[in-house]
Design a protein around this nucleic acid. Structure first.
Lengths: 184, 184
DNA sequence: ACCTGAACACCGTTCAAGT
DNA sequence: ACCTGAACACCGTTCAAGT
């Protein structure tokens, strides 16, 4: 019970953290990456010191906002690996990865940075997803359905960086097909 | 001679503008987009008020830094259009567009923004280039060598956004080949 | 243990005073 | 006509005081 003590949190702290995360998701979705750290705190009804208590900096707040989506994508990669042919699995997964929910649309730059720069908090959050996709891609390459000169991390960075405009209602880019054809 | 009067500039003003532009190119190349506006002014040996006198804001300084490259690329597009088959012209030009000189490498985000957002100063600077490539691409599409569902502006935005890492010594991305295959 | 908001640091931008 | 740097605005971050 002594090591359990570190996990005890006051009810108001839990409430505040949840409110901050929900508020951040909503504001990023509504107004993009221009939202101020202070905006988030005020909209959540707390002081900005509280925001910093729960999220050490902007990067960590963004990582927390994205974590749900990363976890879902990790699980999907593992599921696809066991149930589909390698080429179908890669295509299907990349379509999911490219389909931004509105709440994450404005955070694409942070995702690109997280995939590339290991020092960012987003990098820690997306590593399991990156590893799961790397395995998926390697299998497809071994089976001969994807070119061997394509690097998983680079491929994800390219797709994460596809422009926001011209996406359909599911949030998928018209350019994804170009990339999928190009890696064959 | 009355309308000529507006073009007269004091020698020190011309000297300062040139020094600021050269300094900005060098600093962007050395230290990326993290360079401060004040850094540029100090390194050029002038006050920051002088920098603002010559370039109304950060966006206009970046547009001026990029203008030479945009003009070169515009001229190349027009040259290629008259001397090569449409598909060769498109491939060759896109390889040039993707090959960042070191001085421009860190400005890719501004180029993407300029291609997309008509309000930026970079947009004004890159419009002739965008128009020249649009014509090049349309010709290739009419000749059947490029897919009809590829939009010129989007294509340029995608290529401008290709990640910085893994480029060869000429500054070209290993992913360009994926895109070139994908648009066929 | 947690919250709050004043205070600090940084940087883009403006402008009154100067040559 | 142009230059200069102090001053302002904004925003991310810290921290002393409070509950």
């Amino acid at each position: 019970m002594s090591e359990q003590a570190t996990r005890v949190r006051r009810a108001d702290a839990v409430r505040n953290r949840d409110a901050l995360l929900e508020t951040a998701k909503r504001l990023f979705a509504d107004r993009g990456s221009e939202v101020t750290f202070e905006d988030v705190a005020r909209a959540a009804g707390v002081g900005k010191g509280t925001l910093y208590r729960h999220f050490a900096n902007r990067d960590q707040l963004i990582a927390a906002v994205l974590r749900d989506r990363f976890d879902t994508l990790t699980a999907e990669a593992e599921r696809l690996a066991t149930r589909h042919e390698p080429d179908v699995a890669v295509d299907t997964w990349l379509r999911s990865f490219d389909s931004y929910p509105t709440s994450d649309r404005s955070l694409a730059a942070s995702i690109s940075e997280g995939l590339t720069d290991a020092r960012s908090a987003v990098s820690t959050a997306c590593t399991p997803m990156k590893d799961a996709f790397t395995r998926l891609l390697a299998t497809a390459q071994e089976s001969g359905s994807v070119r061997h000169d394509v690097d998983a991390q680079q491929l994800l960075t390219v797709i994460a960086g596809l422009p926001d405009g011209h996406r359909d209602e599911t949030g998928s880019s018209p350019f994804l097909d170009v990339v999928l054809r190009g890696i064959r």
